[in-house]
Simulated scan of single mutants.
Amino acid sequence: MELETVHLFHGTYKKNAEIINKQGFKAIDIPNVGKINSGTVKSKPGSLGFGLYGFKDNQGLAFNYIKRVCNGTDYEVLCFDIQFHRDNILNFVDSIDDMMLFQHWKENPSRKKLLKILKCKYHNGTKQHSLDGAILEAYIQDMMRLKEFGGPIDAVCSATHTPTDVELNNNNIAMVPNGIEYAVRSNNIIDKVSVKTVDIDSNQLEE
């Protein structure tokens, strides 16, 4: 099966970027299902679960995100490629099959107790949808246990909306997606040679 390649942009603190450029990304930690269900994880999951987040083909969104998060601290935007097989990714952008399978799993009466537990431990805020991420983690681990996937899930992708400076200044944040975000779950799909710091074009970012 042919590999697919996607170009991602990832914002981080400048100190982290320097380490990544020298040593590569650190190992991606996916907590076990027990810790996720009990809410005892060290950090809450992102909207697409645990992993390394990046925006597809859009350095402006990565810039807007990290600028807001760092709040005055030096930051940089990195770009890198990931390569994967279609069967090893959950695609909530344009795969109806992936969307329907996830929906059917959630609607199964046997999941009612689990979803109730997760709703007590996590919530969807304006900046991060931790409940969505926790449910996705439960889904992935359950489907892996049932051997419903063709192999490990190396990444999850979905349409996303990242507020821009204009929206934040006007207190008017749209909900219409303005990009595609990936949560990379395995370092094995990262092309280490492709990792580099982006020379940010401020004129382009303001468009």
Rank of each mutant, 00 (worst) to 15 (best):
R111G: 08
W105N: 11
M100I: 14
V93A: 09
S95F: 01
R86Q: 11
E107V: 00
Q103P: 02
H104D: 15
F102N: 08
I89R: 00
N88R: 04
D87H: 08
H104T: 13
M100L: 14
N91C: 11
K112N: 07
L101S: 13
P109S: 10
M100S: 09
N91S: 03
W105Y: 13
K106Y: 00
S95G: 05
F84K: 03
I89T: 01
L101M: 11
Q103H: 07
D94H: 11
K113M: 04
D94K: 10
I96S: 11
P109T: 12
P109W: 11
V93H: 02
V93T: 13
F84T: 01
Q103N: 15
K106E: 10
D87M: 10
N91L: 07
N91A: 08
L114M: 14
K112H: 13
L115Y: 02
V93P: 08
E107N: 15
L90C: 06
S110T: 14
K113N: 13
E107S: 11
R86F: 03
L115R: 09
L101Y: 05
K112V: 06
N108V: 01
D94S: 13
D87R: 12
R86A: 09
S110D: 10
D97P: 04
D97K: 15
I89S: 04
D98C: 11
M99D: 11
F92W: 09
W105K: 08
Q103C: 11
E107A: 12
M99P: 00
H85I: 05
K113G: 00
L101V: 12
Q103A: 15
M100P: 00
Q103K: 15
V93I: 07
V93Q: 02
L101R: 13
D98P: 07
M99C: 08
D98N: 15
K112A: 13
H104I: 12
D98Q: 08
